[in-house]
Each structure stands twice: as C-alpha cells, then as structure tokens.
Design a binder for these strands. Structure first.
Lengths: 184, 184, 184, 184
DNA sequence: CGTGACTCTTTAGAGC
DNA sequence: GCTCTAAAGAGTCACG
C-alpha cells in the first residue's frame, strides 16, 4: 500500500502529533511531580521558576534586564529602600566611558570619607543636586546599609529624568545579538 | 556528600526541571515540524488539531458536544441551511424515552410520504407549529437535501425555547463521569 | 511644567496603561458574572463561547470551517453516525460546478426512489464503489435518518482519500479575503 | 414579552458577552497604542509592564518576593557581582530578632573599619567562615561597590544551605494575609 | 517574523 | 487531607 494518498497521510500526521502530545503530557506531569516534591521540601516553586528563567539568559542579558528594572524603579520612586546595584550604575554610565576610564573601576573607593547621617529627604535632595553638578550615579557617597543610599539614587535618577533631555541611550535596551549558543 | 542540605536539593530541583523543560521544548519543535509538513502537503492544521481534540473525547462526549452546539445554533437561527444531525435530535429527545420507545428507532421511516415543497419561511412556521402540537424534533418531515429541513428545525427549536418553560434538561451538559480509561 | 522629560513621560505611560488595565479587569469581571448567571440558568458556557466565535465569522467562513471538519472526520472514520451536511457536500463538489450546474440545486431530489435497507458495512462499500464510479458525494442515495447515510459518506470519503491522488483543492482552505466589514 | 424563556435568555447572554468582548477589544487597542507610543519614545515596554506588575503589589509583598529571589540567587551562585540588598538581609534575619534587637538597626555601621582588599574566592571563603562562626548575613564587612561584597554573600548563603540543616523558616514564603485593601 | 491577545490547562490558595 | 475556586502560565492564533 502506498502512503501517497490523502487518507493515509492524514492518519499519519494525526497519529504522530498525538504521540508527541502524549509524551508532552508525561513530561508535564513529571514537572508537576518535582514541584510537589520541592514544595513539600519547603521551597517556593514560583521563585524556583524565576531562577530557571534567569539561568536561561546569558549573564549580559540578565544584567541588562535587571539594570533597566532598577533604573525604571528608581525613576518611579519605587526603590523601597533598596539602593541600585553596582551593575545598574555601571550600565547607566557606560556611555561616559570615554570621558573617564570609568564605571566599575573607580566606583569602589576603599576608604570613603564618612558621610554624615542624612534623612531620606535630605539624601534625595543631595542626589538631585549631585546630578545637576554633573556627578555620575556611581558616585553615591552613602555606604551599603545606609538607608540614605537608596534615597540618593532616587533623587539622582528622578533629576536625570526631569531636565527636559531626551531619553538617554542607556535607557534603551541593547538589540539582541544573534546569540549563538549562549543558552548554556 | 550528603544530599540532605538545602543548597544541593535546590540545585537538584532546578536541574531536574530544566531537563524536562528542555525535553518539552524538543517535543514542541517536533510538533511544529509535523505541522509544517502537513501544511505543505495541503492539509489545514487547524482542522487537524480539531480532529485530535475530538479523538481525545469518548464518542458520547463528542456527540453531546456536537448536539449542544447544533441545538444552540438552531435556537439562535444560525443553522445556515444545515439541518440538525440525527444525533442531536436523539439527544434532544432522550428525556422522552419513557413515553415512547423513542428517538433513533422510529426516527427513520424508510417510506416517508413526499412532503410538498416549502419555502424557508413556511417550513419555519411548520416547525414551530409542530412543536406546539407536541411533535418531537425527530419528526421533521423534510428529507435530507431539502433546504426546508433546516428551516423546520430552526422553527421547532425557536418555539421550544420560547414558551416560557425553564431550560429543559437536555440543554444541560451531562456531568462528567469519573471517566476511567474512556479515551479509547 | 513641561511634560517633555523622561520621568514625567514614563509616569504618564505607566498610569495610562494601568488605567486601561483596570478597565479591562472590570470588563472581565462583567463577563465572568454573565457566565456565572448563564451557568446557573442551565446554559453551557463553553457552547455559548463557541456560538460567539461562530457569530464572528462570516457565513462563508463558517460553512467552510464546518465543511472541512466534516470532510476530515469522514476520512478518519469519525462520523459516528452523523452524515455529512449538505453544505459540506456542496463544498466538496465546488470544483465541478462547470460540469453540471451543480451542487445544491440537484442535490435535492424530492422523489427519491426508496433505497433498500443497508448495513453500515454495506453502505460503506456502496459509498466507496460510488466514488470509483465517478459519482459525487452529493449523490448519497440514503435519506436523512437512515443510519446508512453516514456510512456511505465515510466510504466515499475514505475512497476519495485513498486513490493516490494528491490532496484535492477542496481540502484546502480558501485564503482569507480582505474582509471589509463582514462582521455583521 | 416575557424574558423568561430559553431563546430570549440565550440571546441576551450571547449579546451581553459580545458587547463586553467588543469593549475589551477597544481597550486592548488602546493599550497597544500607548505601547507603540512609549516604544517610539525610547522606553522598553517589557520593563514598563514589569513596573506595573510591581506597583500592583504591596510593598511587603514586593520586598519578600525580591528577598527570596536574591536568597535563591545567592545559593545558586548567580549573584553576578550584585550583592544582596539590605531588605533581603533583613528578611533572612527576621527570625533572630529576639536574639538581638536586630536586623536593620545595627546593619548600618556608619564607621566601618576598612576591610583589606579581597579576591572573590577569598571573600567567598570568608563568607562561608562567617556563617560557621555564627555571624549573620547582615554582618558582611565589605562596603557597597566592593566586588567582594557579593562574593561574601554567596559564600555565606552557600554555606548556610550546605550544613545539613532543614530548610530554615526564612526560606519559606509568608502565607498571604487576608489583605484587606493593601494594594495602596 | 515578532509581538500581543485569547483560550485552556495547570497550579496555588482557601475552606470543610 | 481533599475538593473547589481563582489566578497564573503555556500554547496557539492572528495581526502588523
């Protein structure tokens, strides 16, 4: 019997798809089983799935995504006391690298002079003023753990977004490269 | 090294899920390939997927679904010239089976008397009148191929849905049984 | 204050989207409410949604979709006793319209000669034979209500799909027209 | 005319749903328009949607979610140079609040003694050692901007997850409270 | 081809 | 502990 007829071919297509759908169903059940096990071990499956999503990105993609989120968060005043990460600061300063050697290198000053305590509002004002003075976001003077650090960030970003300039290039996302095998 | 620690267990869960997700991705690509092949062979993938869905139902479920669709279509005047199927007629008469032996058996009369030609509007009126006379939907006098057959159905169903009665039981879907291995 | 700055524009976009999402949420709740009401009135919401989908199609699209489903069903032997509709027969014969005036017109013969009773297997064989004799699917001799009618269809379609021909054109879906305002 | 009949009620349900679907379609188009506008203004819509999602959470939910993500990230060695946030440290120390007054208050020491420069590997080892010494994650000695800060976190978290203990309570998500109007 | 929307399946949460 | 409901995710389809 030749396969070259409509009926047999249709049957073939239908059955091959059904087989694969069946296998997929089995895999989905396997995933559910693992999640059940993880849950009863005390893990949070939603967070686990988020980790899996992040592991699927290249490190560069991951950093860019998180940097943009932090930038937008700071601009919208949603930092909630969490200062921006160094990666985000670096990301925001990447276009100035020709000016100074820049970003990450001089971002860490091992012996900062102690900054006097500042209220959130004061720190916000200082951040805004720092932007107006041409300072970069990497120059936030407050150390980790200081609640003023996040406020300064919000002030700086808010001011950076307020002075009538167009969207600066670091707000834009890098176009995806051809990403050859970076899923490892 | 004992597996009984949070870090190793977390890693394990993450990797097991990732493996399965990877397999699932492969299967999805296989399905897509088959669809591409079917499409270029001239088949309509949407219809193929519909067939697969229907093959996954038991025959009873399939018939009930189609009967309900036809019933609603007739009531909404959307038959477009397609008379209801015998299955749907039978489905709609299932609650009267105690009255008469019923439905399918006497639905087919091999020697019907010829019905004089009727316009759609006339046939619709006759269907409505038939309902009022207590006739069942299985008693549509027009033969297959007669355009009046669908119109009679619409008239009957419309009248059946119009006389202030509550929703009759055959409009309701049968509750799903525990369905033990009925996917054959 | 000028709106021409990043921060204010970002806020604006965010809030406008949030407003619309909020409205959409309200609408979705409205839909859910109606479905709840319909369900408690005894209707089947899945069927209702199907009707809405069909009402959104033009009559021609609707008929083509259903015809293709019936054709595939017949080929796969899934008619379950439901003969194909006249629309589907017409659809399958549309490419022969030049031969004879065609399809619907002569599909209904008000005085068919009575066909002797046939078992499903016999009817199936007769359908296949009819195809081989060059008969069209519109010439199914069994009347509505006769269980043999569907079997004849299955036989005819199965044979039509089995003779090594390529997929006939009526299996293919018509390309969508520009459909200008046909949603009425 | 009484509405108390099947046909009219079905029509009513169908049309009411259709109306709402139509409105929803309009809203979706509005959202698309705004996104198009935002995109051409240089914003990243994906990030905007993420911000909207976060704005819909209460601050407590947002912080817990991000803390758990950071904790898992640290355990899986995915910090990529971004130290954990103070919120996450606080979250992880919340069950020790009875021991010492705790967490946020003493987390910020305005005059830390300068820490000698450390390589990532050294810092990781110091973090692990710190955990074994009973130190809390809030006691990371490296300042913001120091690349060693994140490494110390990874070491600490990794060790915390490795010592055969059961999942500590702070890994678990807080059960959702009845949340009466906390979306502000 | 890539994005968005809609449906449906699965999963998490609440109540008995 | 189990069921039921509501929400989230994945998949598919259509549009630009």
């Amino acid at each position: 019997m030749t396969l070259n007829n409509s009926q047999a071919r249709l049957f073939s297509f239908v059955q091959r798809i059904e087989t694969l759908l069946e296998e997929r169903k089995g895999i989905n059940e396997g995933i559910s089983d693992i999640k059940t096990e993880a849950k009863s071990a005390g893990f949070d499956n939603k967070v686990i799935m988020q980790m899996i999503r992040e592991r699927a990105m290249s490190q560069a993609e991951r950093e860019e995504w998180q940097s943009l989120c932090e930038l937008y968060r700071a601009t919208l005043g949603m930092l909630d006391g969490t200062p921006m990460s160094d990666n985000a600061r670096r990301h925001m300063s990447r276009d100035e690298k020709d000016d100074r050697e820049a970003g990450v290198d001089d971002m860490f000053d091992p012996t900062p002079e102690p900054e006097p305590a500042a209220s959130p509002a004061e720190a916000r004002g200082q951040g805004a003023e720092a932007f107006r003075s041409g300072k970069r976001v990497t120059e936030n003077p407050f150390p980790a753990g200081d609640p003023a650090r996040a406020s300064w960030d919000e002030g700086w970003c808010s001011e950076a977004g307020s002075d009538g300039m167009d969207i600066p290039p670091e707000w834009r996302r890098s176009p995806k490269k051809a990403e050859k095998g970076d899923e490892a």
